[in-house]
């Protein structure tokens, strides 16, 4: 899909995500908005080879949105691509609806439960290791938050995946710099962030998290086959709350609900696509 088309998907997805949250007073728009372009690029950019008609096909690529509070980011996409029947999105968090506050494997297209941080990379590494042992060609992607990199289990797996030379594993780390109480560098310092991944034996690529030009360049490199013997980390500079000016880069908006006036302002802003490249 051409970049112009991907940008259109961004515009659609961001508005859907906002309305899901406003409608139900549940969900995390800022964290989801921060990785909207990452998941659009994966699903619509041809990087994630999946089959909505057979979500468990053994040779499918795997995607683990490990930052489970933003797991809802792919719900509109799962409906759009036909993993679930049309109309499911309207039932987000409602009784009888498939889409839950936090995803789990009861939802077609969801590979693992999420919500508790620090699991996705390990489970993804298990899939990547199985592919190596079976000689399968599928790739495994894990989308992590930087807040998730406080979890020791993330680094346990970072060390393990490098040792196992899982070059079929791509971690996309959303470096938006915010957790709930404050910016990460004011909570517990994470910098030098990229150096940590490099020191753990990963091949590190960098991208603006909201630029398809940069994201597709990084993803092209990640799946090129030129990176051999090392797992790949794409450090994606996202903006938490991207697209809604008063939420952008404000940790306090992690799970705050907007007032009616704020909703109107946000809708006005989201009517214009914030993605330009």
């Amino acid at each position: 899909m051409k970049i112009e088309k991907l940008k259109e998907k961004s515009h659609w997805l961001r508005k859907e995500l906002f309305e899901m949250v406003v409608r139900t007073k549940k969900g995390h728009f800022p964290s989801s908005s921060s990785i909207a372009e990452v998941v659009v690029a994966l699903y619509y950019g041809g990087y994630l080879r999946v089959n909505p008609k057979n979500p468990r096909e053994p040779d499918r690529d795997r995607l683990f949105v490990s930052k489970g509070h933003a797991g809802m980011v792919i719900y509109p996409i799962l409906e759009d691509l036909g993993f679930v029947p049309k109309g499911e999105l309207a039932k987000f968090t409602k009784a009888g609806g498939m889409f839950r506050f936090y995803p789990d494997t009861s939802i077609p297209g969801i590979e693992a439960i999420s919500g508790s941080l620090g699991h996705g990379l390990g489970i993804a590494a298990g899939h990547a290791l199985a592919a190596k042992r079976e000689g399968r060609k599928y790739r495994t992607f894990a989308v992590l938050s930087d807040g998730e990199c406080y979890e020791g289990s993330t680094w346990e797996t970072a060390m393990f995946a490098a040792h196992q030379q899982l070059d079929n594993l791509v971690a996309i780390v959303d470096r938006n710099g915010c957790c709930i109480l404050d910016h990460t560098e004011k909570c517990v310092r994470q910098e030098p962030f990229e150096d940590k991944w490099e020191a753990f034996g990963w091949h590190v690529l960098r991208s603006d998290g909201h630029s398809y030009v940069e994201l597709t360049r990084a993803l092209d490199e990640a799946v090129s086959g030129r990176i051999v013997g090392k797992p790949i980390a794409i450090i994606s500079k996202g903006v938490k709350g991207k697209g809604v000016s008063f939420m952008e880069n404000r940790p306090g908006w992690h799970n705050r609900m907007p007032t009616d006036a704020e909703i109107q302002q946000a809708r006005t802003e989201l009517a214009i696509n914030c993605i330009t490249s």
Binding site: H119, L121, G122, I123, G126, A128, L129, A130, F160
Partner: peptide
Amino acid sequence: DVAAGLAQC
């Protein structure tokens, strides 16, 4: 966690 991934496979 890795065991869970392997078991899923």
